[in-house]
Amino acid sequence: MSNIIIKLDKVGIGYAGREVLSGISVSICRFSFTAILGANGSGKTTLLKTILGLLPPVAGRMEAAPSGERLIFGYVPQASRLDPVYLLTGFEVALMGVYGRVRPGRFVPQAERALTRQCLQATGAEEFSHRRFSELSGGQKQRVLIARALATHPDILLLDEPTAGVDHAATQAVMEFISQLHKESKITVLLVTHDLAAAHRYAEQVIWLDDGKVFQGPVDKLLTAEHFNEILTGTMD
Protein backbone atom coordinates (compact mmCIF):
# COMPACT_ATOMS: atom_id res chain seq x y z
CA MET A 1 0.00 0.00 0.00
CA SER A 2 1.32 3.43 -0.94
CA ASN A 3 2.38 5.61 1.93
CA ILE A 4 1.29 8.75 0.10
CA ILE A 5 -2.00 10.13 1.36
CA ILE A 6 -2.23 13.25 -0.85
CA LYS A 7 -0.50 13.80 -4.16
CA LEU A 8 -0.45 16.94 -6.29
CA ASP A 9 0.89 16.54 -9.81
CA LYS A 10 1.69 19.79 -11.64
CA VAL A 11 -1.30 21.41 -10.00
CA GLY A 12 -2.22 25.06 -10.51
CA ILE A 13 -4.08 26.69 -7.64
CA GLY A 14 -6.05 29.92 -7.46
CA TYR A 15 -9.46 31.54 -7.32
CA ALA A 16 -12.10 31.77 -10.05
CA GLY A 17 -9.82 30.25 -12.70
CA ARG A 18 -7.01 32.73 -11.94
CA GLU A 19 -3.78 30.94 -11.01
CA VAL A 20 -1.93 32.04 -7.89
CA LEU A 21 0.63 29.24 -8.10
CA SER A 22 1.28 26.81 -10.92
CA GLY A 23 3.09 23.53 -11.43
CA ILE A 24 2.90 22.37 -7.82
CA SER A 25 4.08 18.79 -7.43
CA VAL A 26 4.11 17.76 -3.78
CA SER A 27 3.01 14.76 -1.77
CA ILE A 28 1.97 14.23 1.82
CA CYS A 29 2.83 10.91 3.44
CA ARG A 30 0.67 9.07 5.93
CA PHE A 31 1.58 9.74 9.59
CA SER A 32 3.83 12.66 8.60
CA PHE A 33 3.92 16.15 10.12
CA THR A 34 4.24 18.65 7.29
CA ALA A 35 4.42 22.42 7.60
CA ILE A 36 3.44 24.71 4.73
CA LEU A 37 5.61 27.80 5.04
CA GLY A 38 5.69 31.06 3.17
CA ALA A 39 5.25 34.79 3.42
CA ASN A 40 1.84 36.50 3.57
CA GLY A 41 0.11 36.17 0.20
CA SER A 42 2.38 33.37 -0.98
CA GLY A 43 -0.58 31.00 -1.47
CA LYS A 44 -0.37 28.87 1.72
CA THR A 45 -4.07 29.05 2.53
CA THR A 46 -5.03 28.65 -1.14
CA LEU A 47 -2.98 25.45 -1.26
CA LEU A 48 -4.62 24.19 1.93
CA LYS A 49 -8.10 24.97 0.59
CA THR A 50 -7.30 23.15 -2.65
CA ILE A 51 -6.19 20.08 -0.71
CA LEU A 52 -9.38 20.29 1.36
CA GLY A 53 -11.46 20.37 -1.83
CA LEU A 54 -12.83 23.84 -1.05
CA LEU A 55 -11.20 25.21 -4.19
CA PRO A 56 -10.91 23.15 -7.38
CA PRO A 57 -7.41 22.96 -8.87
CA VAL A 58 -7.06 25.39 -11.79
CA ALA A 59 -4.79 22.94 -13.60
CA GLY A 60 -3.16 19.55 -13.08
CA ARG A 61 -4.25 16.62 -11.02
CA MET A 62 -4.72 16.15 -7.29
CA GLU A 63 -5.29 12.78 -5.70
CA ALA A 64 -6.49 12.52 -2.11
CA ALA A 65 -5.86 8.96 -0.89
CA PRO A 66 -4.58 7.44 -4.14
CA SER A 67 -5.25 4.02 -2.63
CA GLY A 68 -8.97 4.63 -3.06
CA GLU A 69 -10.47 5.22 0.37
CA ARG A 70 -12.30 8.45 1.10
CA LEU A 71 -10.21 10.70 3.29
CA ILE A 72 -11.73 12.46 6.28
CA PHE A 73 -10.23 15.88 6.86
CA GLY A 74 -10.07 17.38 10.34
CA TYR A 75 -9.91 21.06 9.49
CA VAL A 76 -8.90 23.72 11.99
CA PRO A 77 -9.58 27.18 10.52
CA GLN A 78 -8.30 30.48 11.84
CA ALA A 79 -10.58 31.25 14.77
CA SER A 80 -10.81 34.91 13.74
CA ARG A 81 -12.65 33.84 10.59
CA LEU A 82 -15.67 32.66 12.59
CA ASP A 83 -18.27 35.36 13.21
CA PRO A 84 -18.66 36.12 16.95
CA VAL A 85 -22.33 37.08 16.48
CA TYR A 86 -23.38 33.42 16.74
CA LEU A 87 -24.49 32.41 20.25
CA LEU A 88 -22.66 29.09 20.31
CA THR A 89 -20.84 27.54 23.23
CA GLY A 90 -17.48 25.85 22.84
CA PHE A 91 -19.27 22.50 23.14
CA GLU A 92 -21.75 23.37 20.37
CA VAL A 93 -18.89 24.39 18.06
CA ALA A 94 -16.97 21.18 18.82
CA LEU A 95 -20.15 19.12 18.34
CA MET A 96 -20.22 20.20 14.68
CA GLY A 97 -17.35 17.79 14.14
CA VAL A 98 -19.73 14.82 14.44
CA TYR A 99 -22.38 16.28 12.07
CA GLY A 100 -20.78 14.45 9.15
CA ARG A 101 -22.01 11.20 10.69
CA VAL A 102 -25.48 12.43 11.71
CA ARG A 103 -28.14 12.48 9.01
CA PRO A 104 -30.11 15.68 8.41
CA GLY A 105 -33.17 15.98 10.60
CA ARG A 106 -31.80 13.61 13.25
CA PHE A 107 -30.76 14.52 16.77
CA VAL A 108 -27.11 14.01 17.65
CA PRO A 109 -26.89 10.64 19.49
CA GLN A 110 -25.60 10.52 23.06
CA ALA A 111 -22.57 8.49 21.98
CA GLU A 112 -21.48 11.30 19.61
CA ARG A 113 -21.99 13.89 22.36
CA ALA A 114 -19.86 11.78 24.68
CA LEU A 115 -17.18 11.56 21.98
CA THR A 116 -17.22 15.36 21.60
CA ARG A 117 -16.73 15.71 25.36
CA GLN A 118 -13.78 13.30 25.15
CA CYS A 119 -12.22 15.35 22.35
CA LEU A 120 -12.68 18.53 24.38
CA GLN A 121 -11.09 16.78 27.34
CA ALA A 122 -8.19 15.62 25.19
CA THR A 123 -7.49 19.16 24.01
CA GLY A 124 -7.83 20.58 27.53
CA ALA A 125 -10.90 22.57 26.48
CA GLU A 126 -13.50 20.84 28.62
CA GLU A 127 -13.49 23.36 31.45
CA PHE A 128 -14.46 26.28 29.21
CA SER A 129 -16.57 24.31 26.72
CA HIS A 130 -19.82 25.67 28.17
CA ARG A 131 -18.72 29.26 27.82
CA ARG A 132 -19.66 31.22 24.73
CA PHE A 133 -17.17 30.50 21.93
CA SER A 134 -16.86 34.16 20.93
CA GLU A 135 -15.81 35.08 24.50
CA LEU A 136 -12.93 32.59 24.67
CA SER A 137 -9.31 33.66 24.26
CA GLY A 138 -7.44 32.90 21.01
CA GLY A 139 -5.71 29.84 22.49
CA GLN A 140 -8.94 28.51 24.01
CA LYS A 141 -10.76 28.88 20.68
CA GLN A 142 -8.01 26.93 18.91
CA ARG A 143 -8.33 24.10 21.43
CA VAL A 144 -12.08 23.94 20.81
CA LEU A 145 -11.51 23.94 17.04
CA ILE A 146 -8.90 21.18 17.33
CA ALA A 147 -11.40 19.19 19.42
CA ARG A 148 -13.97 19.73 16.66
CA ALA A 149 -11.50 18.50 14.05
CA LEU A 150 -10.71 15.41 16.18
CA ALA A 151 -14.42 14.66 16.56
CA THR A 152 -14.59 14.06 12.79
CA HIS A 153 -12.34 10.95 13.25
CA PRO A 154 -9.88 12.48 10.79
CA ASP A 155 -7.33 10.71 8.62
CA ILE A 156 -5.44 13.96 8.41
CA LEU A 157 -5.48 17.09 10.55
CA LEU A 158 -5.17 20.33 8.58
CA LEU A 159 -4.52 23.49 10.53
CA ASP A 160 -4.59 26.98 9.03
CA GLU A 161 -2.28 29.20 11.09
CA PRO A 162 -3.62 27.88 14.40
CA THR A 163 -1.46 30.23 16.41
CA ALA A 164 -2.24 33.45 14.52
CA GLY A 165 -3.19 36.14 17.05
CA VAL A 166 -2.41 33.84 19.97
CA ASP A 167 0.04 34.88 22.70
CA HIS A 168 3.43 33.17 23.07
CA ALA A 169 2.51 30.86 25.96
CA ALA A 170 -0.71 29.71 24.29
CA THR A 171 1.12 29.25 20.97
CA GLN A 172 3.59 26.92 22.62
CA ALA A 173 0.83 25.00 24.40
CA VAL A 174 -1.16 24.57 21.16
CA MET A 175 1.91 23.47 19.19
CA GLU A 176 3.01 21.03 21.92
CA PHE A 177 -0.45 19.55 21.94
CA ILE A 178 -0.51 19.09 18.14
CA SER A 179 2.94 17.52 18.25
CA GLN A 180 1.95 15.17 21.06
CA LEU A 181 -1.22 14.21 19.21
CA HIS A 182 0.80 13.46 16.09
CA LYS A 183 3.22 11.24 17.99
CA GLU A 184 0.74 9.42 20.23
CA SER A 185 -2.21 9.02 17.86
CA LYS A 186 -0.08 8.61 14.72
CA ILE A 187 -2.20 11.22 13.00
CA THR A 188 -1.07 12.93 9.80
CA VAL A 189 -0.69 16.67 10.31
CA LEU A 190 -0.57 19.41 7.69
CA LEU A 191 0.09 22.78 9.27
CA VAL A 192 0.00 26.17 7.56
CA THR A 193 2.21 28.62 9.39
CA HIS A 194 4.59 31.51 8.91
CA ASP A 195 6.35 30.63 12.17
CA LEU A 196 9.72 29.23 11.05
CA ALA A 197 10.79 28.33 14.58
CA ALA A 198 7.63 26.30 15.19
CA ALA A 199 7.99 24.52 11.85
CA HIS A 200 11.63 23.75 12.62
CA ARG A 201 10.81 22.41 16.04
CA TYR A 202 7.71 20.34 15.36
CA ALA A 203 7.46 19.44 11.66
CA GLU A 204 9.21 16.60 9.83
CA GLN A 205 8.57 17.83 6.28
CA VAL A 206 8.29 21.33 4.90
CA ILE A 207 6.50 22.71 1.83
CA TRP A 208 7.92 26.16 1.22
CA LEU A 209 6.12 28.62 -1.01
CA ASP A 210 8.29 31.49 -2.15
CA ASP A 211 7.68 33.93 -4.97
CA GLY A 212 5.71 31.50 -7.11
CA LYS A 213 8.08 28.59 -6.44
CA VAL A 214 7.35 25.52 -4.32
CA PHE A 215 10.01 23.53 -2.46
CA GLN A 216 9.42 20.35 -0.50
CA GLY A 217 11.82 18.47 1.70
CA PRO A 218 12.68 17.26 5.20
CA VAL A 219 13.02 19.98 7.82
CA ASP A 220 16.67 19.26 8.56
CA LYS A 221 17.54 19.65 4.86
CA LEU A 222 15.29 22.52 3.84
CA LEU A 223 15.35 24.69 6.94
CA THR A 224 19.08 25.32 7.03
CA ALA A 225 20.94 28.61 6.77
CA GLU A 226 22.42 27.50 3.47
CA HIS A 227 19.02 26.78 1.92
CA PHE A 228 17.49 29.95 3.31
CA ASN A 229 20.19 31.82 1.48
CA GLU A 230 19.55 29.87 -1.73
CA ILE A 231 15.82 30.52 -1.51
CA LEU A 232 16.31 34.21 -0.79
CA THR A 233 18.82 34.68 -3.60
CA GLY A 234 16.73 32.58 -5.99
CA THR A 235 19.47 30.05 -6.72
CA MET A 236 17.63 27.00 -5.39
CA ASP A 237 16.17 24.50 -7.89
Binding site: K49, L52, L54, F73, Y75, P77, L82, M96, Y99, R148
Partner: peptide
Protein backbone atom coordinates in the same frame (compact mmCIF):
# COMPACT_ATOMS: atom_id res chain seq x y z
CA UNK B 1 -21.64 29.70 10.96
CA UNK B 2 -18.88 27.77 9.19
CA UNK B 3 -19.56 27.16 5.53
CA UNK B 4 -16.11 25.68 4.88
CA UNK B 5 -16.50 23.09 7.62
CA UNK B 6 -19.91 22.14 6.22
CA UNK B 7 -18.34 21.65 2.75
CA UNK B 8 -15.54 19.53 4.22
Amino acid sequence: FDREMACI
